[in-house]
């Protein structure tokens, strides 16, 4: 591999990793704070992509569609937490798995009823539709660069909120000792609603920004969920920092494996995960 192709692949890997981070961050946030393993997280990614498609059809504006979709996702998050997830806090992980798998089926059925089973696509917004010449005949789509920058901005915002704000302080406190936070008079149930809704929104927003560069199909959520779990396990369950590092590593490993060892590329991220767990059984940044 010559150096220019190496750089192109490096960009590919980082860009893919950043999208993975956007999805995985919500999953790890909800697990870290609430101890809930939300298997339906991938479904929220799917819902985001379908909502983006639906609203782009009706409003013609991608930015507006993204905003509406994010708000709807927040509402879904609040409703689901208040009605369903709330029942799980004092129960074991098996019950969580059962309920959240059930939610996958419900969301898939709703998707099929509302939008059918044909693959759908969203056009790249016009302002970002250009490509930058890179090397030889390869061009890099501006929209992919935008997605990467957007993911970095979200990561920075999450870092700021969690480390510098009162909400972040409560989130961190809730992570380390929820009884103590409750005893100090914090309305932990409201905090949980907020955190869960944000988690759902992050997944849905990832679905929205990924919509123009992916195909919107039934089952897209389950597929991405597996990669997200690899990211979260490598990074350490519950750690946002871990999710960020884990996502970039998975993105790079996957990209370079598919070029260097194509026959083995489908298993390389799992081999990598096993390797990390061998050295650090709790993941790279376990709390």
């Amino acid at each position: 591999m010559d150096s220019t192709l190496f750089i192109v692949q490096l960009i590919n890997g980082i860009q893919y990793g950043l999208v993975l981070f956007l999805i995985a961050s919500g999953l790890t946030l909800v697990f870290g704070v609430m101890g809930i393993l939300n298997l339906a997280h991938g479904s929220m990614y799917m819902v985001g992509a379908y909502l983006a498609w639906y609203f782009v059809q009706h409003t013609g504006s991608f930015a507006l569609s993204a905003f509406i979709s994010a708000v709807i996702a927040l509402c879904i998050g609040v409703v689901v937490e208040r009605t369903l997830i709330r029942q799980l806090y004092r129960r074991n992980h098996l019950d969580q798995v059962l309920l959240t798998i059930g939610m996958i089926f419900v969301f898939n059925a709703l998707q099929s009823l509302l939008w059918g089973n044909d693959p759908l696509g969203v056009e790249v917004p016009e302002a970002l539709a250009a490509s930058i010449p890179l090397t030889g005949i390869i061009e890099y789509p501006v929209y992919r660069i935008f997605v990467a920058v957007f993911c970095i901005v979200v990561a920075a915002a999450m870092y700021y909120v969690i480390n510098k704000t009162r909400l972040g302080m409560l989130i961190r406190a809730g992570e380390s000792n929820r009884e103590m936070v409750e005893c100090l008079g914090v309305d932990i149930s409201r905090l949980y609603t907020i955190v869960f809704a944000i988690g759902v929104m992050l997944a849905a927003v990832a679905g929205v920004v990924a919509a123009p560069i992916s195909s919107i199909v039934p089952g897209m959520g389950e597929h991405i969920l597996i990669s997200c779990f690899v990211v979260v396990v490598i990074g350490g369950m519950g750690s946002i920092k871990g999710a960020f590092v884990g996502a970039l590593l998975v993105g790079l490993v996957d990209t370079f494996a598919s070029v260097l060892v194509p026959e083995l590329s489908s298993m390389m991220i799992y081999v990598f995960m096993a390797f990390v767990l061998l050295l650090k059984p709790q993941g790279l940044f376990s709390s």
């Binding site: 010559d2 192109v8 692949q9 890997g13 390869i138 990209t255 598919s258 070029v259 026959e263």
Partner: peptide, 20 residues
């Protein structure tokens, strides 16, 4: 040959662009 059902094609496309 891309592992099924992977749809992350960027790295393969970069290669195609290099081989021309």
């Amino acid at each position: 040959l891309v592992p099924f059902p992977k749809t992350e094609f960027q790295s393969y496309l970069s290669e195609i662009g290099t081989i021309q």
